[in-house]
Amino acid sequence: NEAEQSTPVLFDGLTEENLQFVSKLKDSSSSCAVDVSTVWWEAAGCRELCVVTACENSVSLWKPLAPDHWGKVYTWQLGEIPVIQIIPLLDTCNLICIALGNLEIGEIRLLLYSSENDSFKQSLVKTGNIKAVLGLKDRRLVSSSRSMQEQEVEVVSFSETGRSKHGQTLMPPEETVLAFAEVEGVKDALVGTTAVNSIVVWNLKTGQLLKKMHVGYSYPASICHRAYSDSGLLFVVLSHPHAKESESCGNPAFRVIAFNPKTARSTGVIFSSLPPGHAGRYVEGEVKDALAAAVLSSGAIAVWDLLLGRCTALLPPGPAGGWALVRWGAAGAGLLAGRGDGSVCLYRYA
């Protein structure tokens, strides 16, 4: 039934299904999925790609038991502060990072397994009025936080066993940083988008703030999802939750902009708009490589090929309710889609 309920709708005469239902996880004890992610987990010498689901007051780890079947390994119970998001830590094993808070992030915690005393543990990484956080390569975490007038942008490193090591401070811009993205192709380069719609560029090694570039007024509150450098240009993938619909671009969800970091000038490269005739707006989404996925206000999930600037699949809300969140799994794990009832469906994208 689930597969029938969640059959992707295809556009533009595509002849093969590129989004296929694989399996479903349902935590009977939870009522609402807050976030979902994948994590490498090693136990008894076996390293597997597992799924992590977060509810308001708990986070569960699921391992593959048989093809398309998942079993819960462990559930971390959190305190009174609700979980807001899972923060994927790239190229790590047995480490899960989560953000907790009410309207904003107030706490970042690490969930882990300690082989020393054979137990699942959690540890506090950071507290504060945290505006944005991103997991970086080499077991690092960058965050922006506000205290009174000042903004702090800090990088924290972890050891393999999850111990926090020295933190490094990056020079903060005047405006609040709302999202980060590592720059592919340039080691030590990091970009961020700010509350006044600027792109800022840092040198992670020295902490220098290298450049500030304005995105433009047509697309307020842009959020950076991905950045890469090619041929001397900095390409940034942005989402536009508050962009206005236009005749030329339709209702844009994602946009790729090329910046010349030397001159701060920019040009739009490609727009990825909502499917034609589809009412609603971009609510939240994620980008992985050249693929973007977003939950729309209609409760549907749309997938775009950013190189083509075209929507390639649409998951309708279905009788079980609208989709609430969408994430890309690591290592070709496909698309993870969560509903308000706490269920998470896995789809293969090919």
């Binding site: 041929s231 010349n260 001159t263 739009g268």
Partner: peptide
């Protein structure tokens, strides 16, 4: 916009900006 509107492009933009920016 055309690429010419972006101004002179440098393949080493990161190193150049790092040497120009305040420490």
């Amino acid at each position: 916009c055309s690429d010419s509107d972006l101004g002179p492009i440098s393949l080493n933009w990161f190193e150049e900006l790092s040497s120009e920016a305040p420490p």
